[in-house]
Design a protein around this nucleic acid. Structure first.
Lengths: 132, 132
DNA sequence: ATCATCTATATGTATTTTACACATAGATGA
DNA sequence: TCATCTATGTGTAAAATACATATAGATGAT
């Protein structure tokens, strides 16, 4: 068993600096950021997400809409139907102060994540001497 | 329905540059890298992993051991028991040529991931003008 | 006017990944 | 011989992702 052993102390989770503990959810901070620029809605945000999306060709609509809903549940954004303008009604989202705070927290987490990747790439480069 | 619509073309997955399509499994490239330096075993690799681990205080043993086994299943590493030396037997892992190729593929993916994070941080900085 | 297409939101669900608890056991030292 | 350290694993729930599919209003062409 691990209890009381040094491994227990050594390999136990402690509090994570990132709000949720999951740095992999890159869509969330991006959506928060876009909404910090101006109110918007899912379909439009999908296109904006495109510029950050490095693992998929196009962002997944399911992820976008579900993330927005979950952010709203957490009171990080608020939405209302927008029937003005052309096309079908849009659910228009706005960032709340809580959402802005979450964005700032994400920025911190992303900074440290970037540093980790840089560290990896530096070691990698050092070992495999890429010559241009 | 999506079939035939522009959305179908627009938001469909296409082939991902990263081997598995999942850039989030940072433990895997790290383990591959360490093994490219020298053969090693799970317990030791956990400690090495520490320097990259940005989301948790300490790496999860389960993840390390399972990743190593899965890499072995894919013939990216090979292992054998090492009973020499002090303490309990270790399962010693070595990188295969296939594993080395996988490491190089990961490096590419990590580069592009880093760029995405940088892009995010640049936009963020621009908008929230952090003064030092 | 109706049909295809585009815009827009949303749900269902399987798979993958992560988190964390727990099990086992050899070696070492008090 | 008992606690502790090293070492390798399994079990399982929760979270996240991938992808398919459903619905429906608006728009433009024929």
């Amino acid at each position: 068993m691990f209890e009381g052993s040094s491994l227990a102390k050594k390999y136990k989770l402690d509090q994570c600096e990132c709000p949720t503990g999951k740095m992999t959810r890159f869509a969330e901070p991006c959506l928060l950021f876009f909404l910090s620029q101006q109110p918007s809605y899912g379909y439009e945000l999908m296109d904006k997400l495109d510029q950050f999306d490095f693992q998929r060709a196009k962002p997944d609509p399911a992820m976008v809409y579900r993330t927005l809903r979950s952010l709203e549940k957490e009171k990080c954004v608020i939405s209302q139907w927008d029937t003005k303008g052309a096309g079908p009604a849009k659910r228009n989202y706005e960032l709340t102060p809580k959402g802005l705070a979450l964005l700032h927290a994400w920025a911190q987490g992303i900074r440290s994540r970037k540093q980790a990747l840089e560290k990896f790439l530096n070691l990698y480069k050092k070992q495999f001497k890429v010559k241009k």
